[in-house]
Every structure is written in structure tokens, then in C-alpha cells.
Amino acid sequence: MPVWNIIQAVNDALRVEMRRDPRVVVMGEDVGKFGGVFRATSGLQEEFGVERVFDTPLSEGGIIGTAIGMALYGLRPVPEIQFADFIFPAFDQIVNELAKFRYRSGGEYPCKVVIRTPYGGGIRGGHYHSQSPEAYFAHTPGLKVVIPSNPYDAKGLLIAAIRDEDPVLFLEPKRVYRAARGEVPEGDYTVPLGQAKVVREGQGVTVLCYGAMVHTVMEAVDKQGAAEYDPEVIDLRTLVPLDTEAVLGSVRKTGRVVIVYEAPKTCGYGAELAALIAEKALLHLEAPIARVAGLDTPFPYTLELEYLPSPERIARAIANTARF
């Protein structure tokens, strides 16, 4: 079995689906001949031609708006937004159009688009190459939000996302694009949307995380002494639909929970997780719910590692929660 990084896994997922389904097209800025700024679409135009893998004019709103039109006619476009930070010109098209088409037409016009976009900090990208905008989209009814943390899941989830009947925002953790490596089966397989994965079983503290933060949490466990508290680390993999049972089952078992996400703390996805746990598992809790998140500031350049949840900060939160 080949050992790949996340970029190679994404590339292979696109290739598998484009070979299987002629409705799948790949579009975006620099995705054609160049293969994308992160090389995720490398070689696809060569194999599938310029009609199915094409560069668009430089307009995120145009990429998503036209992808919606293609989907209305039955194609399955997989547009790339070069950086998640650049997704906001398309916000109206995603929130008011893509997410609402099925609903507003009573099912006459489902709109199947999978938006791929690299997100997250830790690559010295400053404000506009580092943000984690998942909460805006998880808040929008009608969108599914998927975030893999490793190559195996990236390929399996992306194939599942393309085959799913609903629009999907597929956020790729660019900090670990190349660093996260692992065995990836060749050919066709899926990882179902809506199923979290227990990365490390434990009895002491539930740690909820996703994307690049899964690796940071594991560093806290393996290298910063948090293993002492026997944490159970859960990689959510899909924020919408959320694997509620996996979250609540673990919290009921451990009675303690730390939520880790790199977006600004206030109204981040972790706030929803905390509310869910408070609503449905309050009487199982032995300690306050802890959140380790980015600061409520724009994403900084020089001090980005201080801004991001660090292994040390996470380990401290796990220890405090375990000892409460």
C-alpha cells in the first residue's frame, strides 16, 4: 500500500471519482496546467482534458456561482478555493444560494457542489492564508462540513463527499498537507460522512478535535505528558452532520472534556460542542468544559505559534480538567 501525504490522497480521490463519474469536473484558480498552488489537482487536466479540469477567471464568487449553475444542470463540480481566507467573496453564493437551493425549490433543484479549500494556520501565512472559517458554514443549514486530518481519511471522505447528495465544504488542513503521511489504499473506498474516529482510547478526559489540531493534540498526549491522564482523543472528521453519539458517549464515559480548535474562541465550533454537551450530558460532567482555541483576534503573523493552541496549552488544559 502506498504511503502518501494529504495532497497526494486528495489528488487520487479526484482522479478516482473523475474516472468513475463523467459528471465530476474540477475548476478553480490555477488548478489546470499548474495543478493548483498546493499541487492537489496535479496531472488531472492532462488526463481529463481542459473541459473537465479548468482554470477560471480570478473570482471566488464566480467560481462558486458558476459551479452552482453546473450542478443545477446535473454536473458534480469540485471547485477549489485557493485559500479558505479567500472564500468570503463567495459567501453569499454559498450561504444564500448553494445551501438553500434544495430547500427553496422543494427538492426540484438540488445543488451538488463539493468545495475544496485549504484552511488553518501554522504556515507563516498571516491573516489571509491562515484562517479557519468552519463555524460560519457549520451555522448554515443545508451545508455539510468535512475536515480530514490524515491522508487515509482525506481520500475516503473526499470520495464520500463527491458521492453524497448534498453540498459539502471540504476543508483541508494545509499545515499538515505534507507532514501527515500514511498508508492509503489505491482505487475506490469511502469514509462515511458523519462518523467520528477515536484516535486514542482512554478513560480520563475526552478531547474533541479535528483537522490539523488532531496532530497537535496527539503531540500534547505523547510528548507533553498528557498521556498520564488517559485522554480519549476523538477526531470529529465531519462537523456537519456531527457524530453526536460518539461525542456524548465518550463524555458520559469520562465525565471530562477538552475541546480544541484553532479558530477564534468565541462562537467557534467548539462553542456548539460545549452547548451540546451541556444540554445532553451535564449530569455526567465532573469538571467544567474546557476550550483551547485561537484568540479572538485576527490571525497574527509573527506570533502565530502563540496564537494557535499549542501542545503545551492543550496538555495544561487536559491536566487541569483531569485534576479538577
Binding site: G62, G65, N96
Partner: peptide, 17 residues
């Protein structure tokens, strides 16, 4: 005006198919 890019994209799909 949000419908206009949809028209363009739909026309792309018609030509592709």
C-alpha cells in the same frame, strides 16, 4: 443578480454535455 453566474455555469454544463 446572484442568479446570473448560475446561468453562465449552467450554459457551461450544457456545452460540456
Amino acid at each position: 443578480g446572484t442568479q446570473l453566474p448560475h446561468a453562465t455555469g449552467m450554459a457551461y454544463a450544457m456545452r460540456l454535455t
